[in-house]
Each structure stands twice: as C-alpha cells, then as structure tokens.
C-alpha cells in the first residue's frame, strides 16, 4: 500500500482535501510552501469583538457607559461646579446656560451633582460586584472542584442566602456598619455573593466533566494548567455576562438604599439621594427628579443592552 493511495481524502468540498496529499515526503517541509496564519494571542478576543459589534444596541450601550466612566472619573475637572458648592440666590432654577440641569434648593448645580453621582454609582456597583464575585467565585469554585460533603454544605448556605430578602439583609448590614460609601459596596457585595457562587460552581461542574479536560490530563497537563487553559476560558463568558447584569443591580440597590435614607450620607450625591430629595418638590420643580432619573434610567438600560450583547456572544457556542 503506498501512502498516496491509502490517504483518505476529506470528502467533497473540504478545503484541505487537495492540499493534503498524504504524508510529507522525507526532507520536504510543508511550511516551506505555504504561509501558516498565526494563531493564539488575541485572536479569540478579536473574534468576540466582531460578533459584539453586530449588535448595534449593545455598541450604543457600551459607548454610553464609556462616556459615563469618562465623566465620572474626570468630574473634578469636567463638572462645572463642585457638588457641595451652594449658591442660595440661584436656588431652584430650572435649566439655563449656567446650570444645564438647573439647581436644587441650596443652589447647587444639578449637572455637577448628577456627574458626581455617576462616580459614586460606579464605585459602589463595581466594588460590590468585585467583592461578591471574589467571595462567590472562590466559594463556588472550591465547592465545585472538591464536591462531596463540603459542596452540599456550601450549597445549603447559598440556598439560605437566596431565601433571605436581600433588601432586609442590606438594611441590617448598614445599620450594623453605619452609612457610607465603603459600607455600601461591602454590604451589597456580601448580599450578592451567593448568586456568583452558584453560577461558578455550576460552570465548573460542567466544565470539568468535558472530554477535553480528560484529554488534557491524558496529554500530561497538571491541575494548574487545566484550570488556566481549559476550565477558566470556558467559564469566563457566563461570568462576564453575570457581572454585566450585577453592576446595574448594584447601582439599583445603592439608589434604593439612598432613596430610603440608608445609602450614601448627604451631601454626597447619589442618584437615589437626588431623586429622594427632589421628590418633595416634584410638582413645583420637576427638573430635580427628571434629570437624575433620566440619567439613572439610561445607565441601567445601557448596561442591560451590553449584557444582552455579551450574552449573545458567550451564551452559546
């Protein structure tokens, strides 16, 4: 049997069929004749971006979020006034050239206060997601990897966390720790870890039973290599999606707490604080509620669009 007669083709239409003429003859080097594309590196990320770009709403949401980030972290320079600067003679003005979003009852510039609120919202929401994810992912990963009694015990604790109303727990935590920015994201982080734990555990359970993990072990990979190259890349998608929905949830929780007077301590602005303060004079001065609500609503919407876009990429393969 000569190789040329026994080497199977790839079936009609397979692009490699004509090029693969069997075994390379001695001394011939296939890479001499053809250029081989580079693989690895950022190729996967570029592919994900191409798919993300197709969803126009998600791209618009991402642009809005980037803009919000820029505003939030350059507020000290970009904002026309400091959030605490009062100007009683100009109190309760509606939109004007000096004050685009108008002023509140102490004459503070609403635009500046909305901008600084964005910074607080971002710090609280991302901080809480980071804490929740760190705690939840660690607990979920250990639980999923080792299984057994540990897993059963951890998952019962998670069930209890789910059964307990998040808002009530938040109030209890804030009461115990006192109001403030740090308290806020720690408290929200603590109340949200269970969801991440459950997610990560499930993902690891299904990922570690994949044939490719056994194949990697068979090829001689150690546990560290398997986790880094075979398990993590395959579960990072759902985690990113969860984070993209966790961030607006954190913002919502912060604003809700601020609204009932248990969130950030005034005069520190937060969308919830602004809306709460403006509600008293909503009929006379609707701009006090309108602008923070609009910004907040748009932000939540943007995160939802981005989350949907990410889910389209990572939800199915």
């Amino acid at each position: 049997m000569s190789p040329s007669t026994t080497t199977p083709g790839q079936g009609p239409g397979a692009p490699g069929a004509d090029l693969a003429s069997g075994f390379p003859a001695a001394g011939s080097d296939p890479s001499d004749e053809m250029s081989v594309p580079q693989y690895g590196g950022m190729a996967g990320l570029r592919r994900d971006w191409r798919r993300f770009r197709r969803n126009k709403l998600a791209v618009a949401g991402l642009a809005y979020i980037l803009f919000l980030f820029f505003i939030a972290f350059t507020a000290d320079w970009v904002a026309p006034y400091h959030y605490e600067t009062t100007n009683p003679p100009a109190a309760l003005e509606s939109s004007s050239v000096q004050h685009w979003f108008g002023t509140d009852e102490l004459g503070r510039d609403m635009l500046s206060r909305v901008m600084y609120s964005a910074r607080n919202a971002i710090v609280v929401s991302f901080g809480s997601v980071l804490i929740g994810l760190a705690v939840g992912a660690f607990i979920g990963a250990v639980s999923g990897f080792y299984g057994g009694i540990l897993d059963i015990a951890v998952m019962r604790v998670v069930d209890i966390m789910f059964a307990f109303p998040q808002f009530l727990l938040l109030i209890i935590l804030v009461t115990a720790m006192g109001r403030g920015l740090g308290t806020m994201f720690v408290a929200i982080g603590i109340t949200s870890w269970a969801g991440y734990a459950r997610l990560v555990r499930g993902q690891i359970l299904s990922a570690k039973n994949n044939d490719y993990v056994e194949a990697a072990r068979c090829l001689g990979s150690g546990n560290g290599h398997i986790i880094r190259k075979y398990i993590l890349p395959n579960i990072v998608g759902p985690i990113i999606v969860a984070v993209s929905f966790g961030v607006p949830a954190g913002m919502l929780a912060e604003s809700a707490m601020s609204l009932i007077g248990m969130g950030l301590r005034p005069p520190m602005p937060s969308w919830g604080n602004l809306i709460s303060a403006g509600m008293m004079q909503m009929y006379g001065f609707p701009h006090l509620v309108l602008w923070p609500s609009l910004t907040f609503g748009l932000t939540l919407l943007a995160f939802t669009f981005v989350g949907d876009g990410l889910r389209e990429i990572y939800g199915k393969e």
Partner: peptide
C-alpha cells in the same frame, strides 16, 4: 513547535493554513 503543528496537520489531512 509551530513547524511541527503544520507537519502534523498535513499528516492527518487538514490544511495547515486553517490552524488559526
């Protein structure tokens, strides 16, 4: 290693240009 990848793909009848 990349050269070997090309060789192996060729050996099993897959166009090495598709390695990415």
């Amino acid at each position: 290693r990349r050269k070997r990848v090309t060789e192996l793909l060729d050996m099993v009848g897959i166009n090495p240009r598709r390695s990415a």
